[in-house]
Amino acid sequence: MDIFLSLPFLQELLLSTLRMATPILIVALAELYSERAGLVNIGLDGIMAFGALAGFLVSYQTGNPYLGILAGALGGILVNLVYAFGTIQLGAQQIVFGMAINIFAPAIASFIYKMAFGSSSSLAQATLMAAIPIPGLSRIPFIGDVFFNHTPIVYLTFLLVPITYVFFAKTIPGLNYKSVGEYPKAAESSGIHVVMVKYKASIICGALAGIGGAYLTTSYISTYSDGVVSGRGFIALTAVIFGRWMPGGILLAALFFGFTDALQLRFQVMNSKTPYQLLAMIPYISTLFALIFFGIKKAGPASSGKPYFREER
């Protein structure tokens, strides 16, 4: 057991935690932006899958993973606008539409991939985004490598946490935005364009979730395969609940899930006797427990999930 306490092991574990937490964190923030405008989006997994494919394709074609991330964002927006149109314009059930996204988006992604590469068994490889160490900071022993030697997407994601906090807590647009998720009628009577805010929210949500997906195929692994998202969208959904709809809480929740993921990978490497499938379950089981213990009390936006119909004018 000494190995657990060794410095290199810890360093690796923490580094891996941050890397694993990144897609969950950015997608959880996507969900937060959606829910603050009253849209519960359970289609994150589907948006991620599409973003992962779009990111991979562009990165593969151009050799530039940054363009891949941009493509992921655009792909995510595209998919989420379908959801937005259905739920905002038609007043459809959000859960139903989210589920539909989860079914059709990965299927379309898979279809496009097969169109592009055929069904050959060899996987196409794209260039991975290189880590950019932050000058100075990255040379601090131990924590330098853990915190300041990552891809820009990781920095961006973690930077989004304080930005999101300030936006919702300290700014006037943020306050108006939040009121749409709480009580759209009051927002409308205060002169806020509710439908517009909801569309903006959908665009932000689609972009962030798409980037989350593209991160997987441009910065984490260099290939695309069906199921590459493997339920991270749902884990992100849990992270929002677990984090009590607060950016700081969501950060902690994402780190927790990232940590369990990193830990199970280490276990797999070290412990060849235990079936790896069992260890791979750790993040999902911890998600389940998180929901059991923290999912009970609803603390989210009051009108989240409810369709909004503007009154007849």
Partner: peptide
Amino acid sequence: MLVEAMTVFENIILGTT
């Protein structure tokens, strides 16, 4: 037409320009 989860202050300035 008040948002329950917000403070009095926030409700008053909501949507004002």
